[in-house]
Design a binder for these strands. Sequence first.
DNA 1: AGCCAGGCCCAAC
DNA 2: GTTGGGCATGGC
Length: 299
Amino acid sequence: MIKITEENNRVILEGVKDLQLDHTFDNGQCFRWYREEDGSYTGVAFGRAANIGCIDGTILLNDVSLKDYYEIWKDYLDLERDYGEIKRKLSEQDPDMEKAIGYGHGMRILQQDKWETLISFILSQNNNIARIRNCVEGLCTAHGKPLGKYRGKMQYAFPRAEDLAKLRPQELEPCRLGYRANYIVETAKQIAADDGRTLESLGKASAKEAYEYLLSLSGVGPKVANCIMLFSMEKYDSFPLDVWIKRVMNQVYHIEEGNVKKMQEYATEHFGAYGGIAQQYLFYYAREINSRRRDRSEC
DNA sequence: AGCCAGGCCCAAC
DNA sequence: GTTGGGCATGGC
């Protein structure tokens, strides 16, 4: 059980298991969290800026009220889910999965805002993570509501659909989104048309229903749709197949390169309801061992 | 300096 | 229904 205390505009969580900040914020599922010198992360979600740190296994939600903890951060960090159980089941599948989970053991799938996830992953196509972050930040700075200065930097909410829907693609040129600017404006129009109601309703819709609606949006194909369902709609059987995972499916599970259908079937058969979570452990592991980034041990 | 990136669209089969 | 070229941009 998590022990929750509040003091000095900060919420302290003791007894949180299976959460390591870099595994969660630096695994490619989100683009607006920045690592500080002390290993904490500063970012914006659902229109709130915050800093999240970890000392000796205790999670510190800095500049967070108890009210916001219950209304936003508890679910955002997916703290009600038992990842120990999920990891145990997935680890039984094969030694490579076990190894990937050992590597990213503190990863949790954030429950992000649907609209923000939609736009962010349209921007992700044929792009790299470092630049996706710049694209998202540029979009927020240019078109998001200012939230005031926080930790030495002006912070902005993610832009609203109705604001982006008013733009001409050309007006997004300063954000350097490339050809994706057209998709952003088109999709913003589609979402703003019913004030985002359909998009929001997809959380309770079937995976099939959500998938079909998402594919109807400009710039959303199978891979992006699966990311949106996994990272913002709690549809954990969604299995996004990007270039990294395709590589893993080929090299580790020996499925012919490009046989997407067989890859999806393999995921369904072996990882089932937690396919998307399995996919994220594999993604993080595959990328980390290929980037030999600096060691980041922490609690 | 090139290669490549959490792919999708659209035309041509 | 499947396949392949084209695609803006900049990190590395």
